[in-house]
Design a protein around this nucleic acid. Structure first.
Length: 419
RNA sequence: GCGAUUGUAGCUCAGUUGGUUAGAGCGCCGGUUUGUGGUACCGGAGGUCGAGGGUUCGAACCCCUUCAAUCGCCCCA
């Protein structure tokens, strides 16, 4: 065993995390958990039923619902072939999978069914603030409900959620209607005609959008587009009486529920199956990624998947973004920290630790390293009671620190005899 | 896919016009001090300066490539 041989043993290279993934730890993980717990509580309040969904589906589930040709499908999904040669895709959203389950699992019998779920979502995108390749969403949908009451329920729940998370300040609900299929088509045609007349003066990006996705010109960030978007045809002029009535019932319902909203005529959805209500809760505190919760009515989706015409509405929100607004949450303080200051007392320490935990206390122990430094080390751990354990004349001796009531509770467990 | 900024110890960061053996604080380990105490002092471990190539007598520093992070654009289901 030469020195040479020892130095030749190369260490394996440490693998790095996948781009766009994140390891959430400590105070940030607490904030993440707080978001999920709050969502679960609110969702029960609103009588939404919990669903657990697979993280992957056949690729068609998403490609059919999103439209085969869009960038979204061709570039931004995590797709792969399984061993049988079938194309599968990690879910880029919850909605399509839930719609599939609605059809394949016979949930039509429960319609209108109120669904809530949460978990990881995958999109092949360039990471930036609040955008990751694997991130997490909470999601709520009502499938099989044509009435605006469903939209109101969902929006009211979202509003309450943001309030219970304590992040409603600086967040506003932007609301729009895309009308029914007829309204939407008429508006779209008018927009194309209007922007075509100003084509040369639009930004390059918007000239491109004119062909692919004209509605998106409306929320262009380019200052060159602003003068034209301001005067563009508005959906209101194209709404059918039915569509107008639908939107009116949504807004008056929100007013009745005490949910503040603001009309945002440029809020659009690129995909054709969106109808009527579209909404986003937007914060002014998250830079370019200001949308914290968004959704709308997608009455055309389930048909696109081959099912019967089924009205549905829903929303989703990124947990990380919500957690960012929540800020970090302190990890819970321990009830007791034990410092075993003498190795001969280790078993007494272990016994006490087990007894405390069985009695319902959260507890940890410091019993390694230099014995004389253990007390200081334990003192740095946030705890209600600090219990130093040493030996005096061979007998275990506890010294407790903390407020009197907490000390007394702990002492009962450490020394049941009361001696 | 495009652009800008940034990668030095476990963490936060210094590091001069390119010049001996790359530093500090915190954290970690050990020793001493204190002994109802979150103190102070001493010591130690830990880095092929993100990776690969190039220029140079000499590169953490200059050039190219690449990977990653951050922020923005595109896109946003």
């Amino acid at each position: 065993m030469s020195k040479q041989a020892a130095s030749d043993t190369t260490r394996p290279e440490i693998p790095q995390a996948i781009r766009g993934t994140q390891d959430i730890f400590g105070a940030e993980a607490e904030a993440f958990g707080f978001v999920v717990e709050t969502f679960e509580r609110v969702r029960r309040h609103y009588r939404f039923r919990r669903v657990e969904m697979p993280v992957f589906e056949k690729t068609q589930v998403f490609s059919r619902s999103l439209g085969e040709t869009t960038d979204v499908v061709s570039k931004e999904m995590y797709s792969f072939d399984d061993r049988g040669g079938e194309s599968l895709t990690l879910r880029p959203e919850f909605t399509a999978g839930l719609a599939r389950a609605y059809l394949t699992d016979g949930w039509q019998q429960f319609a209108p069914v109120r669904l809530a779920t949460h978990g990881p979502i995958f999109r092949y995108e360039r990471p930036q603030k609040g955008r990751y390749r694997q991130f997490h969403q909470i999601d709520a949908e009502i499938v099989g409900a044509a009435d605006p009451l469903a939209d109101i329920e969902l929006l009211t729940m979202a509003d309450q959620l943001l309030n219970e998370l304590g992040i409603a300040d600086g967040v506003t609900l932007h609301l729009n209607t895309l009308g029914d299929a007829a309204s939407r088509e008429a508006w779209r045609a008018a927009l194309i005609a209007y922007f075509r007349d100003h084509r040369a003066e639009l930004s390059e990006d918007s000239q491109d959008r004119l062909e692919r996705n004209p509605l998106r010109i409306l929320d262009s960030k380019d200052p060159r587009d602003k003068p034209f978007t301001a005067d563009a045809p508005r959906i209101d002029d194209f709404l059918t009486a039915e569509a107008q009535d639908f939107f009116g019932r949504v807004t008056s319902g929100l007013d009745a529920a005490g949910v503040a909203w603001t009309r945002s005529p440029s809020l659009v959805r690129g995909l054709d199956y969106y109808r009527h209500t579209a909404f986003e809760f937007i914060t002014d505190r998250l830079g370019a990624q200001g949308t914290v919760l968004g959704g709308g009515r997608y009455d055309g989706l389930i048909e696109a998947l081959g099912g019967p015409a089924t009205p549905a509405v829903g929303w989703a929100a990124g947990i990380e973004r919500l957690a960012m607004l929540v800020g970090t949450k302190d990890e819970p303080t321990a009830d007791v920290v034990i410092a075993v200051e003498d190795d001969a007392a280790i078993e007494t320490g272990i016994r006490a630790l087990a007894a405390l935990r069985r009695a319902g206390f959260s507890a940890e122990v410091v019993a390694t390293g230099s014995p004389r430094k253990r007390y200081d080390k334990a003192a740095k751990i946030p705890a209600k009671v600090l219990a130093g354990l040493s030996l005096a004349d061979g007998a275990p001796r506890w010294r407790l620190r903390g407020d009197d009531a907490a000390q007394a509770q702990v002492r009962v467990v450490l020394d049941p005899s009361g001696a």
